[in-house]
């Protein structure tokens, strides 16, 4: 069979894998941003307990290899908590998303925290001086300004997230990388399939880069 023939024949499987990669990426990006915002606010809190919680979270989940975290959630956690019963029959995808979210969330925590800290103290004081409470100050004054500064590092992290989903192959999630492995195990066409896999990853990541460029321009027009 010719070079492209194998790729063409494997396309349905590859596209299936690419779709899973996309779904896992989107779910993780969304959840990790929520988790990151929560722990960033913890770390910036006046309460010592909340700060410690935030710090501990980042230390642990940034401090371990992602693959260990995936194995831990998938193999070790069920021995303590019956997660595999609670989430049956969806335990595998749930475990994958939990592990990815906790890992990426730790990095996003630091990105969001840095963004919030980069806004001058005077903005907070001005918001408080017109009677806003802490939540309103964050929501209407600090976060909108901080978010613009967070776009480049956040996009960086989202790109990392897309690539990290490839590690879900180790718990038999049929995302793009694992689909590639499966196809090669029967066709032995490493060059063609890995090339196709690489091109698909690159296409996803470059579209995200384009989106971020668009967002940055859009918010530039809307100013600081």
């Amino acid at each position: 069979m010719d070079f492209y023939g194998i790729i063409r024949d494997s396309m349905p499987e590859l596209i299936y894998g690419a779709k899973l990669t996309l779904y896992y990426s989107l779910a993780t990006i969304f959840l990790a941003t929520v988790v990151g915002l929560f722990f960033a606010l913890c770390k910036l809190s006046n309460s010592r307990i909340f700060r410690k919680v935030g710090e501990t979270y980042v230390h642990i989940f940034r401090g371990l290899p992602l693959i260990v975290e995936i194995f831990y959630v998938y193999f070790a956690m069920p021995m303590i908590l019956p997660l595999h019963h609670w989430f049956d029959p969806y335990f595998t995808p749930v475990a994958g998303i939990i592990a990815l979210t906790l890992n990426e969330g730790a990095y996003i925590t630091e990105i969001i925290r840095a963004g919030i800290l980069s806004i001058q103290r005077g903005q907070t004081e001005a918001a408080l001086s017109i009677g806003m409470n802490t939540f309103q100050t964050m929501r209407y004054i600090i976060l909108p300004q901080a978010f613009k500064r967070m776009i480049p590092p956040l996009v960086n992290q989202f790109i990392q997230t897309i690539k990290d989903t490839s590690l879900l192959s180790v718990i038999s999630i049929n995302e793009l990388t694992r689909q590639g492995q499966i196809i090669i195990s029967t066709t032995f066409s490493s060059l063609q399939i890995w090339t196709a896999v690489a091109v698909i990853y690159l296409a996803m990541i470059l579209s995200l880069t384009a989106l971020s460029g668009y967002l940055e321009r859009k918010f530039q027009i809307a100013r600081r």
Partner: peptide, 11 residues
């Protein structure tokens, strides 16, 4: 309150 450095909301 009016501040020395104005502290208008930049966005």
């Amino acid at each position: 309150m009016v501040f020395q450095h104005f502290n208008l909301f930049n966005h």
